[in-house]
Simulated assay, not measured.
Amino acid sequence: MESTAHSPSIVRPGALKSSFSVEPLAPTIGAEIGNIDLTSPLDDDQYTALRAALVKHKLLVFRDQDISAAQQVALARRFGELEVHPVFPHHPDHPELVMLGGDSKIPGRENIYHSDVSWRERPSMGSMLRCLECPSVGGDTIWVNMAEAYARLPESTRDALDGLLAVHDLLPAFGTRMSTDERAARRAAFPPAVHPVVRTHPETGERVLYVNEAFTTHLLNYIEKNDVRFGIDFRLAEMDLLQYLYRQAAVPEYQVRLKWRPNTIAFWDNRSTQHYAIQDYFPARRRMLRATVIGDVPV
């Protein structure tokens, strides 16, 4: 089966052969891609090799890529259909690009471990973030390999997660930015989504821990999967388990940390990672443009 931008199949390791270089950034996640000019459209071989590198390393970093907003949209669209985010401000000419970053009066609030738009029925396959402006010190971003996080859980915990479902919701993270009427409209348009606590990556078959503290609110069927004495046991045990799972993203051994420079692009797989934008630079500015590729329904 051939791989296309809209019908991905498992990409074989041999597809990594290409003219660009791939330099790992950390033992478990991340690679810097060199010897490539993203101002030119990707040919089929480049696309196939980059998709293979993305799936393998989960985060790709490209330095010194002075591309336009239109070129960023075209590049991201090569990997699939792009979403239009319902809350973040959009680029005036390209609604597929969200504009991220505060100013000297409003700090950013992305400093929480999360996977982009996990509250959608079809969450993101990947996100492509381009740095326009950043401070000389501070404003790094951390990414986490959540397949590794799942694989290194105790076996008894992995067994306990089998069949569990989690609820992901837009409003806890974004509702404070909205009026009462806006919250009601967003709730109607984007009801909470239910996804497996452990999803299977559609291209690798990896098992991935898929809960995050930004959007996952509770476990839907905890009481069905566990024996409890009283209601208080059910609630406390559920919350304890969910908090334990949230904390797996903070394990340094599963992470890589990127120092931004203008014209740096990070492209990551939201199906197998979480990330955390460090807010240590306010009131300096950090301005970014993000394109988000729509994914599949987690299973």
Rank of each mutant, 00 (worst) to 15 (best):
A193N: 04
P202D: 01
D181M: 11
T4M: 05
D93C: 10
Q279R: 09
G205K: 03
P8N: 07
L75Q: 01
F230K: 14
P196K: 06
V117D: 02
D45G: 14
P95T: 10
F174R: 09
N263S: 10
D233E: 12
E133S: 09
H94S: 08
A193Q: 04
V117S: 00
L289H: 11
P262N: 05
R290E: 02
E81W: 11
R183I: 12
G231T: 07
M1Y: 09
A266F: 04
Q243W: 11
F234E: 15
V299H: 07
M1A: 12
I223V: 15
T157F: 03
T216W: 00
D64L: 06
H85V: 08
N270H: 04
G30R: 08
A160N: 12
A31G: 04
L242K: 07
W119D: 03
K259N: 12
D37G: 02
V117P: 06
P262G: 03
G175V: 03
F282S: 01
H195D: 00
S19N: 14
N35I: 11
I294R: 11
N145T: 08
V22Q: 01
V208P: 11
N270F: 02
T4V: 08
H114L: 01
D227I: 14
Y150R: 04
G14R: 11
L132W: 05
Q279T: 15
H195M: 02
K259E: 13
R63V: 13
G205S: 05
V55R: 07
W260Y: 11
I294V: 13
E23L: 13
V98C: 07
D296G: 06
L209M: 00
A49K: 05
F190M: 13
L236C: 14
D227G: 15
D181C: 05
W260I: 10
I33Q: 02
R12N: 15
N35K: 06
R229V: 15
A26N: 08
Y222N: 02
V11N: 01
M178F: 05
A291E: 04
V144Q: 01
K105E: 12
F62K: 03
A266N: 07
A214D: 04
S104H: 07
K56W: 03
L38K: 03
S136G: 14
H218K: 09
R122Q: 05
G30E: 03
G175S: 08
R261H: 09
Y47E: 10
P8K: 11
I36Q: 05
L59G: 05
Q65L: 06
A214R: 09
L161Q: 00
R199N: 03
H90G: 13
D64G: 05
F79L: 06
L289S: 13
R285F: 10
R78W: 04
S40Y: 12
A52C: 13
I278T: 08
D44Y: 01
Q279M: 15
R290N: 09
Y47A: 09
D45V: 10
T28V: 14
L25I: 12
T157L: 10
M1W: 04
R63W: 13
L258V: 12
K56G: 01
G175D: 02
P89H: 01
H275V: 09
K105I: 15
Q248I: 15
L153E: 01
G231V: 08
T4I: 07
C131E: 00
W143C: 05
K56R: 14
K225S: 11
T292W: 00
N263E: 01
P298R: 00
N221R: 07
A15I: 12
